[in-house]
Amino acid sequence: MQIETETVEQVTKRLRRAEGQIRGVIAMLEAGRDCAEVVTQLAAVSKALDRAGFTVIASGLEQCVASEDAAERATSVAKMEKLFLSLA
């Protein structure tokens, strides 16, 4: 099952922002910034990555529901549920 183009664009944009945030966290650590500030930024990066993962999973679930074959749909939904739980 492939990810829809619109979802790929959306997730890629979110991951590029997270990439910038990670570079910022590294710079903060190297500059000796306050621990609370660093942790706040790490939490923001973590949330951005989680949202990217959930967006991909939601897209996959939409495709599973649209699947016409019941057995294929059940297998795909089970796989997506397992992936969802790996992010939770």
Rank of each mutant, 00 (worst) to 15 (best):
Leu83Thr: 04
Gly53Leu: 00
Thr5Pro: 15
Val8Asn: 09
Ala71Cys: 10
Arg23Ile: 00
Leu87Ile: 01
Ala36Phe: 11
Ala66Arg: 15
Asp34His: 14
Leu83Trp: 11
Ser86Ile: 00
Ser59Arg: 06
Ala58Lys: 11
Gln10Asn: 07
Ala36Gln: 11
Glu9Ser: 12
Thr7Leu: 11
Ala70Val: 12
Glu30Trp: 02
Ala52Pro: 03
Ala44Lys: 00
Thr5Leu: 12
Ala66Gly: 08
Val38Met: 07
Lys47Ile: 04
Ala88Pro: 07
Ile3Asp: 09
Ala78Gly: 12
Ser86Cys: 01
Leu85His: 10
Glu62Asp: 15
Phe84Tyr: 14
Gly53Arg: 04
Met1Trp: 08
Cys64Glu: 07
Lys79Ala: 12
Ala43Lys: 10
Leu83Met: 11
Ala70Gln: 11
Glu68Gly: 13
Ala44Phe: 02
Thr5Asp: 14
Arg17Ala: 00
Val11Ala: 06
Leu85Lys: 07
Ser86Pro: 01
Gly60Leu: 05
Ala71Arg: 06
Met28Pro: 00
Asp50Cys: 08
Ala78Asp: 14
Gln10Asp: 01
Glu30Gly: 04
Gly53Met: 03
Ala88Phe: 09
Val38Cys: 02
Ala66Lys: 15
Val8Pro: 05
Glu37Phe: 04
Ser86Arg: 06
Ala71Met: 10
Ser86Gln: 12
Thr55Gly: 03
Phe84Thr: 08
Ser76Arg: 15
Gln21Arg: 07
Asp50Glu: 10
